[in-house]
Design a protein around this nucleic acid. Structure first.
Lengths: 218, 218
DNA sequence: CGCGCATTTTGACATATATCAAAGCTCGCG
DNA sequence: CGCGAGCTTTGATATATGTCAAAATGCGCG
């Protein structure tokens, strides 16, 4: 939690953040309808969150990586409203929400930080609605790749070369497409020379054209 | 703001909530990139929120009615990230956010309420992602109608007969469909005897079948 | 190191939804 | 109270994406 605090306060947050918890690849950090106790800060690794429809259809609602906070959806009902699954062996830090609530009353910057994190999630969701509601398949994939690239870059990784942690099927679920469509879009981008794809290894060759692909298909 | 408080505290919230503001049908309450000062509680009327894509495409991200709070997305950047447009002559109450922040430090129930409202918005957005990402046209429309029906019922209106405030085009934008598709879905539901449609006047005849339509198209 | 399973790619075809077009309604305004 | 603009409906057709199928590839496990 990158809140700027001094001494004593910082200590309290540190205490809160001590206890790490390991989650193996494929394991659930929480499931829909689990009782809510804590938010989770991802220390290492990555997760996907998904909601399940009555008839078994699933929708991936997000891919989260180091430094991101998950579980915010559960505050509203004290029940988790989605599943969180580790996409690789990961470590998280549980942040008991009632402690956060108490502390945030005394630490204005923590309170503000929580509001901002939640608001940011709402903005992110708006972006996904825009993507799902009004973009075509290749635009969606381009947007997805650019988003991933940015987030990796911010974490000090290469913005142009990376390994996907998720399957075509998971990408498809997130983007509202079938895995075959995702695969074809990858192949097409490669043909166009925008990216190199070797299964899950991605290299972005032409960021500009990829950005252009988000705006007007191609 | 339905927070349970006593005397003095209640008074402070009441003071905050005094100053109503009128917004005429079609007017913008705020626009994307406007500086953020206040959340807005809708007192009467209804709004739509929309985000605009670079190339002019628009996505309606929600329809809000009396009692709902809008503007939460702006907290993250201190800029509004969408437009809010009145769908009919409406009244809102501006809630200056820095005052809310301050008060919420002293009133735990207000703080909790704000967290819950924001979380609820995140859950709502997840539901829309599910809808946009994995439902077919008629399932989307059925889900939309049922949602509207519930929200109206909770406000004391009829759950089975109501007037749509929004055009086919706006519904389409919200549901990720073209207006013609929305219109056809309405007609089809009417043929099936699930609803009566007379342009914007809707009567729900068979709630159960409508619910069934959400699960497995038909 | 190689077998076998899961994932990915690619192709052929099906279909839901979009697009284009025209006609019919409604409702507000004069 | 009737006219006209903007919605809405409906039809015919186009197209993006889904579906089904099979081959290719990669990867974990023994």
């Amino acid at each position: 939690m990158p809140v700027d605090l001094s001494g004593d306060d910082m200590q309290r947050i540190n205490d809160l953040v001590q206890k790490k918890q390991r989650v193996a690849r494929g394991d659930y950090l929480y499931r829909s309808n689990d009782p809510f106790h804590s938010l989770y800060a991802i220390r290492t690794g990555s997760f996907k969150t998904q909601v399940l429809h009555a008839d078994g259809r699933e929708q991936v609602t997000g891919f989260q990586m180091t430094g991101e906070i998950i579980g915010l959806d559960a505050i509203s009902t004290d029940l988790h409203s989605c599943d969180a699954v580790a996409m690789e062996d990961s470590e998280v830090c549980a942040l008991p929400f009632n402690q956060l609530e108490t502390m945030s009353r005394e630490l204005p910057s923590l309170q503000r930080h929580l509001y901002k994190i939640m608001s940011r999630e709402i903005v992110r969701d708006q972006g996904i609605m825009l993507l799902l509601g009004s973009m075509r398949a290749e635009e969606r994939l381009a947007a997805f790749l650019l988003n991933l690239s940015q987030r990796l870059a911010r974490r000090g990784f290469s913005a142009t070369q990376f390994q996907l942690r998720m399957s075509r099927q998971e990408i498809g679920s997130y983007l509202g497409l079938k895995l075959e469509t995702v695969s074809r879009a990858f192949s097409h981008f490669q043909e166009l020379g925008l990216i190199n794809v070797k299964v899950r290894a991605i290299e972005i060759i032409d960021v500009q054209k990829l950005q252009a692909a988000v705006n007007c298909s191609s």
